[in-house]
Amino acid sequence: MAGGHMKYRQLSRDSAHRQALLRNLVTSLIKNEAIHTTWPKAKEAQRLAEKLITHAKKNDEVARRKAQAILYTPHELLPKLFGEIRERYAERPGGYTRVLRTEPKDRYDQAPSAILELVDGPKDMRFAMTAAAVARDRALGKRHSDLTQKNIAKVTRYRREGRDAFEDMVGRVEGMGLQEKEQEQQGGNGNGN
């Protein structure tokens, strides 16, 4: 049926190849907590990763078997999935992953690229970028914008000890001295250099 609604993306692969690809992406995501791939692959892998984490939250034998069927290296990753990741998302009702669009990975084909990451983890990019924005605003003596305020609320809402962890990250960013470098660059540009 031409033009009909598709339940999922085909990704130009047959069924077995597509399933293997998605299992590999989700295994890498659980192992590394962030992966860089094309945007359509990231969106499809996000669906499978959300289901996998929902199974982990149930923490019963059926959920373990389903997770074992998805992951390629279950002996390595099941303890992480049913331990650290399950505890991290125990209070979160959904939305365990985030897809961020990026510049194309490959200059040859210019395919739309994306980063698929687990939220509230050590590699959470929104958390780090919001902390950098807050550190910059504090160094310049500016008020936070509405968007920054919303991002602060989002990144601290479900994170354990979210405000303390966020202030710690802001302190680390301030310790890097990035604000001074930025002010020097702005000062150099203002003098006609």
Rank of each mutant, 00 (worst) to 15 (best):
Q46W: 04
K43F: 10
T27W: 07
D109P: 02
K7Q: 12
N151D: 15
G171M: 07
L100V: 12
G95E: 00
Q19N: 10
I152E: 06
K123A: 12
L22S: 07
M6K: 02
D137S: 12
G141A: 04
T27E: 07
E76Y: 04
L140S: 11
K51C: 09
N59A: 11
A133H: 01
M176V: 13
L77N: 04
T27N: 08
E76L: 12
M169W: 04
V134K: 03
Q185P: 09
R101D: 14
A45R: 01
I115T: 06
R65G: 12
E50I: 00
E117W: 01
Q68V: 00
L100A: 06
K51D: 12
I35N: 00
R86A: 13
Q185T: 08
D137I: 01
A56P: 04
G162D: 10
K142I: 11
S15V: 11
P104K: 01
H17D: 14
P112R: 04
L52K: 03
K123Y: 11
H75L: 15
L81Q: 06
M6P: 05
Q186Y: 12
E33N: 07
K66P: 04
T130Y: 07
D168K: 10
L78T: 02
V119F: 03
E50Y: 04
K66N: 09
S12T: 03
F166P: 00
P122V: 13
L29E: 02
N24C: 07
G187N: 15
Q10S: 14
T156P: 05
P74R: 05
Q179M: 15
L178Y: 03
K43P: 08
G83W: 01
S145L: 09
Q183P: 07
A2L: 14
P74K: 01
D60P: 03
L100E: 10
L71D: 00
D168A: 15
N189T: 13
G83D: 02
K57F: 02
K51W: 13
E182D: 14
L77K: 06
N24P: 08
A128K: 11
M125T: 12
K105F: 15
Y8Q: 10
E44Q: 06
G94R: 03
L71H: 00
